[in-house]
Design a protein around this nucleic acid. Structure first.
Lengths: 200, 200
DNA sequence: TCCGAAGTAGACAGATCGGTCTACCTTAAA
DNA sequence: TTTAAGGTAGACCGATCTGTCTACTTCGGA
């Protein structure tokens, strides 16, 4: 996984003085800024003016890349999907790439200072009436389940079990989001323990 | 549970011609309208003007009861909490008041035409930076867990298990919200099955 | 009988929203 | 050398946002 993606996903804001002097192209800056603000403060409560100001571009440049805020929202979800899945797969690898790896991965996520839950679940709550949004959530969760399938032994119904495990993760994520990350991980372990006693 | 609460929680819109002629007081009308719109379309995307118009009150009346939109949002969450918990307890009773009752209760919820996920999880995604909101979510989920505790046998760690079951419910709720209610219930059953094999 | 609470109708204000527009500059490839 | 893509700065638009205001009405209880 390239450094930039890992940075966006997990790092705390770095010292500007130490930052790479060559700033990325406008589109990338807009997307990164939108990602930070949309994820942290919500989509509807973040105006395009603020993104434009913080990305250091002009309105013309912004609207050249994203004809409407709606386009930016969808691009943000696609961007988030890419960096989250990359991070998730990498983190699972680092912890052994099996069912038991999920716990430390969640730990790493929940206790990251920028954690604010699952961007897709949040977007669903905020604009769950927009079909393009719902579709993106579906895609994201489908791919997440596929990654989880890869952690399961092949002598069981992996698709079913992966779906259940993914639901346990989502339950844990929202619980961590309202301020109970420890309890969330504990509850997740209980649910997984149950899963494991169903797995032959 | 009084009829009005059950109506708000579960019924499809009734025929206006058959409705009770004596309309409820202004505050109640505002609260019901806000509940419908906030839940269905999101909090930030619903302007007070629309609530005022659909509740059939004037701005003065509105702002006399709720000095700011923020006050209305918090009142909405308290209102939602009351009607949801009432419905949840009642529904569990109707299906036997044990762990196995949760499945048909979720079924009833997910397939209701007005279902749009958990209002608290949605609010958290939308305005999870506001401490009063986070606090309400915490309160709501704590009470939900307490109700679930009542379904568990007393020869186990009910608090822990109830927390895990509640997380499985939340995972199922968000999955149902993005359009997979059947898979959500199936996954929930798998998770609960695991729980039950941990329960002595 | 008087008074205050709760209601009506609707104009208005200031801020912010998403989005458009003109005018000019830089750079790299055809 | 020309040209097109991508960039800058900032004025401007109409719509919508939350919230305030004046002026009048209705009604139940002290």
């Amino acid at each position: 996984m390239e450094r930039s993606v890992y940075h966006v996903m997990m790092d705390t804001p770095s010292n500007p003085a130490l930052m790479d002097q060559t700033k990325p192209p406008a589109r990338e800056r807009i997307l990164r800024t939108a990602h930070t603000l949309f994820y942290r403060e919500g989509i509807r409560s973040t105006g395009v003016d603020r993104i434009i100001a913080e990305a250091g571009v002009t309105k013309v440049t912004f609207y050249r890349h994203f004809p409407s805020k709606n386009d930016l929202i969808l691009a943000f979800l696609d961007y988030r999907h890419r960096i989250w899945i990359s991070w998730f797969q990498d983190a699972l690898q680092r912890y052994g790439n099996n069912l038991l790896a999920i716990e430390p991965v969640l730990q790493e996520w929940f206790f990251n200072p920028v954690f604010r839950g699952c961007a897709f679940i949040n977007a669903l709550g905020e604009m769950g009436t927009m079909p393009e949004i719902v579709h993106r959530v579906n895609q994201h969760k489908t791919e997440m389940r596929k990654v989880i399938e890869g952690l399961l032994p092949d002598n069981c119904d992996r698709e079913d079990l992966a779906g259940a495990v993914a639901m346990a993760i989502d339950g844990a994520v929202v619980r961590a989001e309202w301020g109970e990350p420890i309890e969330a991980i504990h509850g997740f372990n209980l649910l997984i323990e149950g899963m494991r006693c169903l797995t032959p």
